[in-house]
Design a protein around this nucleic acid. Structure first.
Length: 461
RNA sequence: GGCGACGUAGCCAAGUGGUCAAGGCGGAGGUCUGCAAAACCUCUAUGCAGCGGUUCGAAUCCGCUCGUCGCCUCCA
């Protein structure tokens, strides 16, 4: 499988060291507020990527962090009067709930920054010992100029960055672009003891520590949104490679494009967001996943009401095909052969192998759906094709389940009673009454479809 | 100011040197149906922001112009 590597700017073959286990680190969230669809996009993409790797026989060790201590959390907590820790844990719990609802597989490990202090301190000490870092009044900074290849991921130079630097040079820094590994605690802030006094880790060091501790010194894939390339991932490389002396820290750097709402990226700081919770209230997980996977992961994607609704209908189309019944079941069909899913599977795989081109894989699924529907009309056997559709859809994390299964079980007998009555009315050519029942059910979100084998119903959306 | 992307049909979005420019949604017509829905069939970009250039051949490579976005500060 070939994957585009941000570091080299080329597609490269994914080849885990032991040939079997892919060690993948994906940057997680800072849990100070609700997750939005942009986060969902990133995690849906990496989830589908992981599912595909597993489908192809790789084992995946997937680590995703929580930055559960940082300025924003402290800030938010001080305003609400909540403990920083409680605030973070509350959002982490919500995050899990929402990711589960999106059918995102749990990572192997979810380390939290606040639970990795020993490793973080070990790293900082090591960097100081090698003079890659220096303490200054309780802070510790990374010496950016000490590393000749600093900037290689984001393809920048120190001079270029200084030109338009908006960073105000900290008084303690030797050089304006040096970044904090450790921040001295201000009064009242959460703090941990360290050789440089009480304080807390800087943003970037936690990820290096967690990756090193949970995956090893050299990992296969490091992923996240494109907005993390600089400074976050650049700094992670700097720290990790300086500490271990081994390059590359990550074999492939994989970055997803950002979700735009209107003409700007959806982000917490801009406040133009739709939360995952809101999205899930109105749309199925399949629809949200289809929306995300319908675009190439490295390109920006525009979110709009119209687009997500298109995904709703697309998801329904796939479900309908997966549940279709061949007309041969009625004895009408005469064709003995079966719909052949093999070419569609091949297209699906070829697309995924070439830099995880999910939109082309999705297109193959839609074409397979058409093949199934056509086969059903012609009375072909479609069971194998439907099994293939479900299997490949599952690789993308699509369930093809109708929504609201639990309430469906409860209301099913009542709906069926109504359908029975309506069927009798239709037999008696009482169409006005029959249509009235159908209309009322439609208004309540129950869609009816009259077919040669009787009336089928489903919950709409 | 520096760096990096992008601009493909009404909308979303693949394609990135050579049979027909994927797929979804929407729209038009048709088949089926008591009607509807679903499904199926046909159609919906002689053209890929604009202008030059390279090439036997370009949406696809190069240059310029216009427009949009991202990063350079927290951010998936």
């Amino acid at each position: 499988m070939k994957i585009f590597n941000t570091l080299t700017g080329r597609k490269e073959t994914l080849a885990p060291a032991d040939g079997k286990t892919v060690r993948m680190y994906v940057c997680g969230i800072t849990p100070y507020s609700a997750a939005h669809v942009g986060h969902a996009m990133s995690y849906i993409l990496f989830d589908a990527f992981r599912r595909y790797l597993e489908y192809r026989g790789f084992a995946v060790r997937h680590v995703q962090n929580f930055t559960d201590i940082d300025d924003k959390i402290i800030d938010r907590a001080s305003r609400t009067g909540e403990q920083a820790h409680d605030l973070a844990e509350r959002h982490i719990a919500d995050f899990f709930k929402e990711m589960d609802a999106l059918n995102i597989q749990r990572a192997t490990v979810y380390p939290r920054a606040t639970q990795e202090l020993p490793k973080i301190i070990e790293l900082i000490e090591g960097l100081i010992a090698k003079s890659y870092a220096y303490p200054a009044s309780g802070d510790v900074y990374f010496r950016v100029r000490k590393q000749a290849d600093y900037g290689k991921l984001s393809h920048r130079t120190l001079d270029g960055m200084q030109a338009g630097a908006r960073v105000e040079p900290g008084a303690q820094k030797e050089y304006p672009l040096d970044f904090a590994l450790w921040k001295a605690a201000k009064p009242g802030e959460p703090q941990w003891p360290s050789p440089w006094g009480p304080g807390r880790p800087g943003w970037h060091i936690e990820c290096s520590a967690m990756a090193l501790r949970h995956l090893g010194e050299q990992i296969d894939i490091h992923g996240g949104g494109q907005d993390l390339i600089f400074p976050h991932h650049e700094n992670e490389i700097a720290q990790s490679e300086a500490f271990t002396g081994k390059k590359p820290f990550a074999g492939i750097w994989m970055h997803n494009g950002l979700l735009q709402l209107g003409e700007e990226k959806m982000s917490k700081s801009l406040g133009n967001l739709i939360t995952v919770k809101e999205a899930l209230a109105a749309h199925s997980a399949d629809a949200i996943r289809l929306f995300v996977l319908g675009a190439y992961y490295r390109n920006p994607l525009k979110f709009s009401q119209e687009t997500i609704e298109a995904a709703d209908r697309g998801a329904q189309r796939l479900r309908t095909a997966a549940a279709a019944i061949s007309s041969s079941g009625t004895g009408r069909g005469t064709v003995a052969d079966a719909a052949d899913p093999a070419p569609f599977r091949q297209r699906f795989l070829d697309a995924m192998e070439d830099d995880f081109n999910a939109p082309q894989s999705v297109a193959a699924l839609f074409d397979l759906a058409r093949e199934i529907n056509r086969g059903a009309e012609e009375g072909k056997s479609i069971a194998a094709a439907q099994a293939q559709l479900r299997e490949l859809a599952a690789v993308l994390g699509l369930t093809l389940q109708e929504r609201a299964p639990q309430s469906q079980a409860d209301i099913a007998p009542f709906i069926e009673l109504l359908l029975e009555t309506r069927t009798n009315l239709r037999s008696a050519k009482q169409f006005a009454l029959a249509d009235a029942i159908r209309q009322r059910l439609t208004d309540l979100g129950v869609a009816l479809e009259d077919g040669p084998q009787g009336t089928r119903w489903r919950l709409a959306k």
